[in-house]
């Protein structure tokens, strides 16, 4: 087992609203090792982005971390003050957002973005920072970086801008990069290039990635392990080969069944009936039971725990029963 970069333990995020407390994240636990890509999948509103935001202290108001711990290496970061987390952001954890078109300041050149970020984190002078910026652009695959560095964001294509955004996240060589839907706004052909780039960075730099997406295909191609989230909880977590190849949780099975495939003989794609419940109206017991074909009485009464082996866990009463019996 290689060195653990990030571990999240029983994380709980709550929103105080006029109608009472909403639980946006409930008992989230996972860890990411050096150079590993952890995919986080789920429908919109499942809490994928909220998990990333919680790690970076970027939860929108009035949300707050109500329980659990987040460890970066040996350091606890969930209880840091503003100065503390600002020393982590960009320096030890980088973050990439969905839309590269709006992620860059339109009034600044790409080089200004890079040198500014580099000089905030590293003790380099202007010339050294610029040299490093050119290296970074080269590394993320911007052709002719020494010339392009003085261009403005609007002079780059969408895919190139996402490369610049990745370069910005890598400025200070963070141990972990949280990528929140990094390819959603891009063309399919460009998506493949960005995926390749992420894989390359993992192997050459040993950077760990937390890859938030709803694209199962991207997970299958990029991630080492995957966490499936549903209504603010982790439903299943494990190696990609296991979770994608032989999913246990009925929701994960449904998700995999919804991927179109050329050698699939079924005439229609399978779909999961219904939609994810809103956080204001979570059902009792397992949140998935109203949509689950295999729901049992216990599913309506008690929420299942995330149990199983170290490298493959599932939160479902179908499997819990065997353990209780054993």
């Amino acid at each position: 087992m290689s060195e653990t970069i990030l571990s999240v333990e029983n994380l709980r995020v709550e929103f105080e609203t006029r109608r009472g407390t909403l639980v946006a994240l409930d008992d989230i636990s996972f860890s990411i090792a050096k150079g590993e890509v952890l995919g986080v999948v789920g429908e919109s509103g499942a809490g994928k982005s909220m998990t990333g935001a919680a790690i970076m202290h970027l939860i929108p108001r009035p949300g707050r971390i109500a329980g659990g711990r987040i460890l970066l290496g040996d350091q606890r970061i969930d209880n840091l003050d503003r100065t503390g987390i600002e020393a982590i952001r960009g320096r030890r954890i980088g973050m990439i957002f969905q839309d590269p078109l709006t992620s860059l300041n339109p009034l600044m050149t790409v080089g200004d973005h890079l040198t500014e970020t580099i000089r905030v984190h590293l003790p380099l002078n202007r010339r050294q920072a610029r040299a490093r910026a050119i290296e970074l652009l080269e590394e993320v695959g911007i052709p002719d970086p020494a010339v392009r560095i003085d261009s403005y964001p609007h002079e780059f294509s969408g895919g190139q801008r996402q490369r610049v955004v990745i370069a910005l996240a890598l400025c200070a060589e963070p141990e972990l990069v949280i990528a929140d839907e990094p390819t959603t706004a891009l063309d399919v052909s460009v998506q493949a290039q960005i995926i390749k780039l992420i894989r390359k960075l993992c192997s050459t730099r040993g950077t760990a990635f937390m890859l938030i997406t709803h694209d199962m295909g991207m997970i299958a191609e990029t991630a080492d392990r995957v966490a499936v989230m549903y209504a603010g909880k982790v439903a299943e977590i494990g190696k990609v080969s296991q979770v994608v190849g032989a999913p246990l949780h009925p929701y994960a099975q449904g998700l995999m069944g919804a991927i179109p495939s050329l050698d699939n003989e079924e005439p229609r794609l399978r779909q999961i009936p219904g939609s994810m419940p809103s956080l204001t109206a979570l059902p009792d017991g397992c949140s998935f039971h109203p949509r689950c074909e295999r729901a049992m009485d216990i599913c309506r009464q008690r929420a299942p725990a995330l149990l199983g082996a170290i490298d493959h866990k599932v939160a479902c009463h179908l499997y819990e029963r065997e353990e209780v019996a054993a």
């Binding site: 970076m56 970027l58 600002e86 020393a87 982590i88 952001r89 960009g90 320096r91 980088g94 973050m95 957002f97 839309d99 709006t102 992620s103 860059l104 300041n105 339109p106 500014e116 970020t117 905030v120 984190h121 955004v165 910005l168 996240a169 400025c171 200070a172």
Partner: peptide
């Protein structure tokens, strides 16, 4: 509220900047 400010925060740029 724009993304590039959010991204700036996430890259650890100081508030004043």
């Amino acid at each position: 509220r724009t993304d590039f400010i959010k991204f700036g925060v996430a890259r650890g740029l100081p508030r004043a900047r």
